[in-house]
Amino acid sequence: MAQVASSKEPILKVVHLKKYFKVSLGVVRAVDDISFEIMPGETFGLIGESGSGKSTTGHVIVGMYAPTSGKIYYKGIDISVPAPKRPRQVRKEIQIVFQDPASSLNPSKTVFDIVALPIKLYKGIKKREELEDEVARLLELVELPPEYYMYRYPRELGGGEKQAVAIARALATEPSFIVLDEPTSALDVSIQAKIINTLINLQRKFNLSYLFITHDLGLARNFTTRLAIMYLGKIVEIGPTERVFKNPLHPYTQMLLSAIPVLTEEEEKLKPRGIASRGEIGSPMNPPPGCRFNPRCPFANEACRKILACIFLSCGLQCRKPCI
């Protein structure tokens, strides 16, 4: 059973992670003490409204900037430093696909140039023919026929095709963990499905682990195995996707699920306890005292303004383990 135990070792471990940004008016607490673990081969969802700190979490993990405090471990190696200071071997293992495909590809480079660069840097292939072979292989993985796409410029591609190129670039270093920062939020619904399918196929093929950042609950339900709900820099609920959707514990999760638009009465009845959404997400510069969600919570009382934890959750607000 030793093998089973080792496969339970998390690929990524985030412990008490904080990321504060100093701005002219004060301090933005984008990520405020969150912890979670991602297992090999799983898709971990990070859900939240804009401003909840979910993208910042992804950016800290890939090393765009150092965390204010807390630790990130990749396969047990401490990587709580910006990317340039990480071991080369680890840097190639962790890749990211950005939200905006238009901005993630250099408009003056061809698809070949864009995808070949990480290959040059990490595999030491220099010859043009060999690079073309490698780029072609990657383009086929993301279902872009290389004969047609190899020497195209980003402006000649559609949003979904651009995002596919960005995925190919992320795959070029043969990573085992990819942060997907709202990879489909800028795409049409029809193309979303295609990109998600590509990602699922790639995951099966290479046993990839994903951190999937999104605000789309439907997508999260279909795509993730476990997820964490973020609100104002804190994780309010964490657990297996199935459980969270069937039996949401935190009032915020309940509110989010109630807000999913449905067509029929039957579907409406399937929803958990209906909580009408009210108010908007607060400011991460000046978070409310006590439970971050209390100004919008229908069940809030005096105690909620004093204790950081939500009184509804027996296991507490900042629970690090799945509740059920």
Partner: peptide, 26 residues
Amino acid sequence: NEYYVIALELLGAKKSYIMFREILPN
């Protein structure tokens, strides 16, 4: 601040390469 520059920095491309070959042509 474009994502493609950030992606190159994360990959560890040389700063001179990023400046002269990726940014300057634009």
